[in-house]
Every structure is written in C-alpha cells, then in structure tokens.
C-alpha cells in the first residue's frame, strides 16, 4: 500500500480543503442567494424558498450529511491547523500573509457565528414550529435589532472573505495555479467573486428589513 494512503495526513488535509469548497462553500453561495430573495417579501420567501427546501426528499440526510457534518469536520480540523501556525501579520505586512492571518481569524469568528446563527434559526425552528413556519418574520424581527444585524453583517463578510481566500489558496494547494502570476490573477478573480457573493448576502440581509411584509403570511 502506498505511503500517501498509509499516512492519512495528506488525505485529511485535502479533505479539509475540499469540504471547505464542496459542499460547505457551495452551500454558502446557495444559501446567500436563497436569502437574497428576502426582498420579494415574506410570502414568496416562506413559500418558494423555505418551502421548496422543506419539500425536498431526504432533507435531514442532506442537512446533516451534506452540510452539518462537512462543516463540523472542516471547522474542527481547521482549529487543529490554526494551532499549528503562528501568524505575524504586523512584522510581515505582505498582503498574502495578512490574508493567512485573516483566514484563521475569520475561521474562529465563523465558528462562533455559525453556532449562534444555526441555533437562532434552524435549531430554534426545531424547538418552536412557529418560527419555522414564518422564518421570514422571525429573521425580520431578529435583524431589526441593530446588534443582531451587525452580527450578521460581520458573520456574512467573514464567511465571504474566508471562502474567497480559501478558494484562492486551495487553487495553490491543489496545484491549479502555480506561477506567481497565475496565483495573483486567480486571487483577484476570487476577490471579485467574494465581493459579488458578499453583495448578494448583504442585499439579502437588507431585504429582510425593507421587503413588504404582505402576502399570505
């Protein structure tokens, strides 16, 4: 048996990287796009977005197997990785090094954010079916609090930065980009994608507050 399989280290690392993109990164993109539909109002959101999802077959399996578990694994192993490095963003003020540091800070921030966020939404919905029934209203009420709104804004952008930078570094780690030029170009591409994703997310956040409540809720 070959050494790379004999030692699980390499595969674990690559799995971590992979999970960050697929499914977790993909989920993020999808999730933010979904939430951006908040501006169509409660009825649309609750029926078309939340409802359509709730109608999926094997939903718990998807939720746990494709979202929760990979995210958890990525996050936990991410903590292990963070423990193995010592960032010095001040001494070495190069952009990539700052991003290296940001990747770790954002990872820890995200862990906090996601735990609270999922608790406030999905978990709360499990406990109280009323919340689940009108997620739009629930979110609108929560986000009306400027602290919660700020919390979401930060969490959102941490996630976007983490994902975008993660994509750029994953391209190096997997050997997609090799020359310095290619790495720089792809980095900017990821930054652009991140901006777009962040805009969509922000738009969705704002949508909860500005969209018409009306409809059949």
């Amino acid at each position: 048996m070959s050494a790379s399989i004999a030692s699980p280290h390499f595969l674990l690392r690559r799995l971590h990287s992979l999970f960050g993109i697929l499914p977790v990164g993909a989920f993020l993109a999808f999730h933010l796009w979904e939430n951006s539909q908040s501006r169509f109002g409660a009825e649309h959101f609750n029926r078309e977005v939340v409802g359509a999802l709730a109608g999926l077959n094997y939903l718990p399996f998807i939720e746990i197997g494709l979202i929760a578990l990979p995210l958890l694994l990525h996050a936990l192993y991410g903590l292990v990785i963070i423990g193995g490095g010592r960032a010095e963003p001040l001494r070495y003020s190069y952009l990539r090094n700052r991003l290296y540091w940001l990747q770790r800070i954002s990872g820890i921030g995200l862990l906090v954010f996601i735990l609270l966020h999922v608790g406030m939404t999905r978990m709360a919905g499990l406990v109280d079916p009323a919340i689940h029934a009108d997620l739009f209203g629930h979110m609108r009420a929560a986000l009306a609090n400027p602290w919660v709104f700020g919390f979401y804004l930060v969490g959102l952008w941490l996630a976007v930065v983490h994902f975008a930078n993660g994509l750029a570094t994953a391209a190096i780690s997997w050997g997609l980009t090799t020359s310095a030029m290619a790495q720089r170009r792809f980095g900017w591409l990821c930054a652009a994608g991140g901006l777009l994703l962040g805009a969509i997310g922000t738009h969705g956040l704002v949508g909860y507050l500005t969209a018409p409540v009306g409809g059949g809720a």
Binding site: G84, Y92, R96, N97
Partner: peptide, 11 residues
C-alpha cells in the same frame, strides 16, 4: 500540506 500559503517565504 503544512504550508498555509502565507507566502512570506517568497517575499
């Protein structure tokens, strides 16, 4: 895989 792409090295 222990490289975290900080890229100080090359700088």
């Amino acid at each position: 895989t222990d490289c975290g792409n900080a890229q100080n090295c090359v700088r």
